[in-house]
Design a protein around this nucleic acid. Structure first.
Lengths: 191, 191
DNA sequence: AAATGCAAACCGACTGTTCGGTATGGTGAG
DNA sequence: CTCACCATACCGAACAGTCGGTTTGCATTT
């Protein structure tokens, strides 16, 4: 019979403010005011401002990692797996546009330990993604004349950049854009 | 016989610190200490912390705009112009990696007026770039089944993302990466 | 009685910015 | 050549306000 979830309210307010003004330029005071709670309440659930930032990352990272693992474990062909993975990460990113913005803007502001944790999980995600491309190369469907790292960066740049230009209220449709960007990517890496 | 340029020193320190810790998390005190000047000296040349951020943008925007205009005014074919424009913006961005980082991380923290100025100049740049693609479409060399806005975003995402993954000390070579990313882009938009 | 959940008051450190004042170097008059 | 004059360059202390974080204490639940 909880009528008001403090944690959720704080995180939600933090995501919005961090995305809008940046982590460093947003004060804890602003966050708790927007969340409709007091500092005492916030510090009861979060150890620090840093902790708040980390919580945002964890949500998104966990979600996307689970999706990717499910796709890789499926019985699709390599080509279809890669396509599905691309479309999924774009769509889930659009669904969490603000979190994405915070993620890419403020990841480096995390404390040493937390940043290592995030970096490692990101790398794990990237490696799983890269394994798809590697499989495709062995099957002879993707080009090998460009370093894998460049290909990966080329794709994730699109995901990253979504938070800059894509707007849910804009003229572009989420599903359509996901297909278009995926098509552009796969066309450019096909042999 | 000026042995020490305060403005240059301040901007240089600001670029480095803003890129490292973010605009909002860097204090004026830190900047002037790194620059080896006093706050008084800094505020003699810059009206505000905001002004400092703006100065960084202006440098990069002006440089890249001039380059693009020169390329468009050249007598190359449309295809070669687009290729040259892509390679140039990637290479100049790599040359100004830290400025690029600051640019994309903190553009939204500018004051209203300043942000409008920056946005307008960025749009002008984008429009000139887009005109190249439009020309190519009329010549029938680039596909028309994907919105121009998506194509533009697709390319600039690579430029944007450079600041995240590219390192001058890393295994990748600037010129090579510029060619590879340009190749990926042009291959994906060719009919 | 003990533990949880939270509000309110509070802490010292630090914020961006201002400002009174000094040092420096060039210009024009005598 | 000299000296008054003045703009520009720069200094560093001080400002009012805000920062992230802590402490205290009181309800409510267990």
């Amino acid at each position: 019979m909880k009528s008001f979830d403090v944690q959720e309210s704080v995180i939600s307010a933090a995501v919005e403010l961090f995305a809008l003004h940046g982590f460093g330029s947003t004060s804890v005071q602003q966050v708790v005011e927007a969340a409709g709670v007091t500092k005492g309440a916030m510090y009861h659930y979060f150890r620090s401002k840093d902790d708040l930032l980390f919580a945002i990352y964890e949500q998104l990272l966990t979600l996307q990692s689970e999706h990717l693992r499910a796709i890789i474990a499926s019985d699709l062909s390599t080509a279809d797996k890669l396509r599905a993975a691309c479309i999924d990460v774009i769509e889930t990113s659009v669904d969490s546009l603000q979190e994405l913005t915070v993620f890419f803007q403020s990841a480096h502001l995390l404390s040493e330990d937390r940043r290592k944790d995030v970096t490692q999980r990101r790398r794990a995600y990237n490696d799983e993604f890269a394994s798809l491309i590697e499989s495709g190369r062995r099957e002879g469907i993707y080009r090998s004349d460009i370093p894998r790292a460049v290909l990966i960066a080329h794709f994730f740049s699109d995901v990253h950049y979504l938070s800059t230009w894509f707007s849910p209220d804009g003229p572009e449709d989420k599903t359509l854009v996901a297909e278009q960007l995926t098509d552009l990517f796969i066309r450019s890496i096909a042999v």
